[in-house]
Design a protein around this nucleic acid. Structure first.
Length: 309
DNA sequence: AACCGATTCAACCGCGACGTA
DNA sequence: TTACGTCGCGGTTGAATCGGT
């Protein structure tokens, strides 16, 4: 026994919406407002699933939608937000008035594909990763990765956006950051962006001199089609013993949960998750709170662990 | 003009989160 | 605590369109 269907599929239309259906939906929502999508189709005289109505309205019919190409500013913002939020399209869309999560997702996916497929003369070697997700593309993953990285490294504006920090870039789990935010998601994201994009200035990060600065073009490891840049740096060469997952609570305080490396590696292996960044001996401030590598010589922040599971 | 591969984007699907009884 | 209903999200699909030959 599975989940009951969200609507009576036998009596619902699927596929492209007609002008008449659009008109009915618009008229109904103008008269009654959004909400109660399940009952809306019947009330509006539509032979559509409630979910379909919601999607049509949100992605296409809403009067406040901005149509047309993305501006450079929007481009930059999307990249910046994606580097922080990952595939949280709805959160990203929330920062771009008039844009929908679906639109941004499509845009991102086509943009990344374009980047990956762009030909290039050179191709430096990349250590093949054992991660099986590398094979999810039907082509030479490593080479394409390299091309992408080269492009990113040479595209000044985007690079500045992606790597504005004197410290290694990394990703946070915004979900954790927002935990307990009591609905003030916008405020938290604003705060989060301020703290982590423009943002973390030179004073706030002091990377150990022995720590080789990570250059964008040197990215190795995995990349899925939805995540840029790849943020796992040579996990096999990590020094390790002990790593920590990092989350930020609503007060901006860091919560560090220690994980054994084995445990981490096991988890990483099971994930198709390039959203990690590791670094040694990083110290600095985050969320107004000082960060120091703890007992081990490796201060590591994991993004997305394990809350996104 | 016709064909065909590439790209775009609207729509669908399944699942998790959340509220409520 | 559990079961159920609803909503919203993210991944995926496939039809339409574009662009090259």
């Amino acid at each position: 026994m599975g989940r009951s269907p969200c609507c009576e599929k036998a009596h619902t239309n699927k596929g492209a919406w007609t002008k008449e259906e659009d008109d009915r939906l618009i008229a109904y929502i103008r008269a009654h407002g959004e909400g109660c999508w399940r009952s809306l189709p019947k009330a509006a005289g539509l032979l559509r699933c409630g979910k379909s109505c919601r999607l049509r309205w949100i992605n296409y019919l809403r009067p406040d939608l901005k149509r047309g190409n993305f501006t450079e500013e929007e481009d930059e913002l999307i990249i910046k937000l994606h580097s922080l939020l990952g595939n949280k399209w709805s959160l990203i869309a929330g920062r771009l008035p008039g844009r929908t999560d679906n639109e941004i997702k499509n845009y991102w996916n086509s943009w990344i594909k374009k980047k990956i497929r762009k030909p290039s003369a050179s191709s430096t070697s990349i250590t093949p990763s054992s991660n099986e997700q590398n094979s999810q593309f039907g082509y030479a993953q490593n080479q394409q990765m390299d091309l992408l990285n080269q492009e990113l490294a040479t595209k000044g504006q985007i690079q500045d956006t992606l790597f504005p920090l004197p410290c290694p870039p990394f990703m946070f789990d915004i979900g954790l950051a927002l935990e307990g935010s009591n609905g003030n998601v916008d405020g938290k994201i604003d705060q989060f962006l301020q703290e982590n994009t423009g943002l973390m200035n030179t004073e706030t990060w002091q990377v150990n001199q022995n720590q080789e600065m990570i250059q964008p073009a040197s990215f190795t490891s995995t990349l899925d089609s939805n995540c840029l840049p790849p943020l796992m740096e040579n996990i096999e060469s990590m020094l390790p013993i002990e790593v920590q997952s990092c989350s930020i609570n609503v007060q901006g305080q860091m919560t560090l949960d220690c994980l054994q490396r084995n445990e981490l590696n096991e988890w990483v292996d099971t994930q198709q998750c390039p959203n990690f960044y590791f670094w040694d001996q990083a110290e600095g401030h985050l969320g107004g709170q000082e960060i120091y590598p703890t007992s081990s010589n490796m201060g590591t922040i994991l993004s997305s662990y394990p809350s996104s599971l």
